[in-house]
Each structure stands twice: as C-alpha cells, then as structure tokens.
C-alpha cells in the first residue's frame, strides 16, 4: 500500500526543508568569496585553511574534542555500571536505578546548566576542562545506560552458563563473555555521549570562561558577531565528525543486534 500523491508531495518538500540547512552550510563553506552566498562563488578551501590556521578555532577544537572524549568515557563507565546494576543487582529496585540514570534526559539543559554552574563554580574543577566534561558526561549517561541495558537484556543467560561450566569463575565469565558481548553497545552509547558533548552549547556557555571555550561556544559568538564563510567551514567540520561517529555507532548497534538474534 503506497502513500497518496498529496502526502508524498508534502514529504518531499519537508525532506528538502530538513536537509536544506546542512547542504547550504556545506556548500557555502567552499566559496572563494568573502561573504556567504548560495550558490557559492567558485570553489576554494581557503576558509578551511583559515579556521585551521586560527589559534582560537584550533584551541576550541582541542577543548571540544578532549571534553567529548572525557565525557564519553565517564558516561560509558557510569552508564554501563548502572545498567548492570539495574539488570542484575538485587538490592536497589531496577526502576530507581533507571530513574536516576534517565533524569538528565528530561531536565531542560538550561536548568541543569545553572545547577552545574552553581555547584562547580566554588570547586577547584571550575575553569578546568574536567568540570565541563563531568557535566557533559551526565548528559551522556542516559544514552549509555539505555544502550547497555538493551544489550544486557539480549545476552542469552545460557551463554554465560556455558562459560561457567567450561570452567570460568564468576569474574572470568563477566570478563570473557558478558563484557565483550555488551561492549559494542557501550561504545555506541559512548559515541552518542561524545556527540552530545560535541554539539552541546547551553551548559557549555554557562561553564565557559575566556580560557575554556568549546567549538559551539566560539561558533555561537561568531554567530552573534556576524556571518562569515569561515563559520560555515567550522560548522561543516563539526557536522562531518558528528556524522562519521554516529554512523559508526549505528553500525555497532546493528552488529549487536545481528549477534543477539
């Protein structure tokens, strides 16, 4: 049963509206002119050279990347442990663990951001990359939690039993069977966490200092100052990395699904 012509037309128009912004940005970043025009004038990499040559962009890139990696690793560890606790722990009810792990997802960023700011400003973490990474890690925990929990529920208990009857003690079973089986999902969750941090601007703005600026913050300040093709180039770089990582995450999840069936 195919959809009618009317709905198909709407769908195509909406598809164009959805994709248009990304395409326009990518296209304008290659302009050889000095202002943003679409279609771009000529083709050049000059704006990429400019942002990669610009210290501010480079520093922001490094800050963002480091924050993202740190946040992803923390979120991965915490999300995974909470998922195991929810699925297999006996003391704390599963729903309580799940609520705790999922809350960062429903609290509006600006509310969480103020909290982070007020809580962290008086600690030695403030103005240090770890404060931002920790805050971003909290935003990434739900992704890791959900991913690992799903993978963990899909692990066949008989496979773990097979390992133990093959002579593996409890810890060995976990290390050689359970963890390898959920690892792809944990990494996929970690990639989501990285991308969350990589794109995040609200919390970052609140925790930012003149010496601690991520790419989105620099981007936002340029946005307020005025538009340049270099902004497009930066946007394209940010988006490209995001897409690559999310495709990897998607492939990892697919592989996981293929295994569990």
């Amino acid at each position: 049963m195919n959809a009618g012509l009317f709905s198909r037309t709407i769908a195509v128009v909406v598809a164009l509206l959805l994709a248009a912004p990304t395409i326009v940005i990518a296209a304008t970043s290659f302009t050889s002119g000095v202002i943003i025009t679409f279609p771009p004038k000529g083709f050049s990499m000059r704006w990429y050279e400019e942002i990669f040559g610009d210290r501010a962009w480079r520093d922001a890139f490094v800050t963002s990347f480091t924050t993202g990696i740190l946040a992803a690793v923390i979120a991965m560890v915490i999300g995974t442990l909470l998922a195991f606790m929810a699925a297999r722990g006996r003391l704390v009810p599963r729903s309580l663990v799940a609520t705790l792990a999922m809350t960062p997802m429903i609290v509006p960023l600006v509310v969480a951001g103020i909290g982070f700011y007020m809580a962290y400003v008086h600690t030695s973490l403030y103005n240090h990359i770890t404060s931002l990474a920790l805050a971003h890690a909290m935003l990434g925990v739900p992704f890791c939690f959900l991913n690992v929990l799903a993978a963990l529920t899909a692990v066949d208990p008989r496979v773990e039993e097979a390992a133990s009857i093959c002579g593996a003690g409890k810890l060995t079973v976990i290390a050689t069977v359970t963890v390898p089986l959920v690892l792809p999902s944990a990494v996929a969750g970690g990639l989501f966490a990285f991308v969350t941090s990589w794109d995040e601007v609200v919390v970052a703005t609140l925790l930012a200092t003149p010496t601690l600026r991520t790419l989105p913050i620099l981007f936002l300040s340029q946005l307020r100052e005025g538009l340049e093709p270099s902004t497009s180039a930066a946007a394209t770089v940010i988006t490209l990395l995001t897409i690559v990582l999310l495709v990897i995450a998607g492939l990892l999840s697919r592989r996981q699904r293929g295994r569990s069936t």
Partner: peptide, 9 residues
C-alpha cells in the same frame, strides 16, 4: 545446550 549457547563473539 538446546540453543547451542556458543559464544557469539
């Protein structure tokens, strides 16, 4: 085991 329970990884 009935469902083989081989280590899928």
């Amino acid at each position: 085991f009935q469902n083989y329970a081989l280590f899928p990884h």
